[in-house]
Computed example of a mutant assay.
Amino acid sequence: MPRLIHLNGLPGSGKSTLGRAWVEAHDGSLLVDPDLLLTSIGGWRERFFALIPTARALAVSLVSTHLTGSSDVVLCQLATAPGEIEPYERAARDHGADVVEVLLTCDPELLLARRSARAGDTAHGIRHDLDAVIEEHGGEQLLRRIQSHFQAYASLRDQAHRLLVRDEPVAETLRRLEELLDPGCPKTG
Rank of each mutant, 00 (worst) to 15 (best):
R3V: 00
R3Q: 04
L4A: 06
N8I: 00
G9W: 10
G12S: 01
S16P: 02
T17D: 01
E24Y: 02
E24A: 11
E24T: 07
A25G: 08
A25D: 06
A25K: 10
H26W: 08
G28S: 01
S29K: 06
L30G: 07
L31C: 02
L31D: 01
D35R: 07
L37I: 11
L38I: 04
L38K: 14
T39G: 05
I41K: 04
I41R: 11
G43I: 06
W44H: 04
R45A: 13
E46F: 09
F49Y: 13
F49W: 12
L51G: 02
L51K: 11
I52R: 14
P53T: 05
A55E: 01
R56D: 08
A57K: 12
L58D: 08
V63S: 04
L67W: 08
S70R: 15
V73F: 00
V73W: 04
V73Y: 03
Q77M: 13
T80F: 00
P82T: 12
G83I: 02
I85Y: 06
P87K: 10
P87H: 10
Y88P: 03
E89H: 15
E89M: 15
R90A: 11
R90P: 00
A91D: 09
R93E: 12
R93W: 07
R93V: 14
D94A: 14
H95Y: 00
A97M: 03
T105Y: 00
L111Y: 08
A113S: 13
R115V: 00
S116G: 10
R118T: 09
R118H: 08
A119V: 01
D121E: 02
A123R: 15
I126M: 14
D129P: 02
D129L: 13
D129Q: 15
E136S: 14
G138Q: 05
G139P: 12
G139K: 14
L142A: 14
I146L: 15
Q147H: 14
F150K: 03
F150G: 01
D158A: 15
H161C: 07
H161E: 11
R162M: 00
V165D: 01
D167I: 04
E168W: 08
L174W: 08
R175I: 01
R176V: 06
E178H: 15
E179A: 15
E179K: 11
P183T: 09
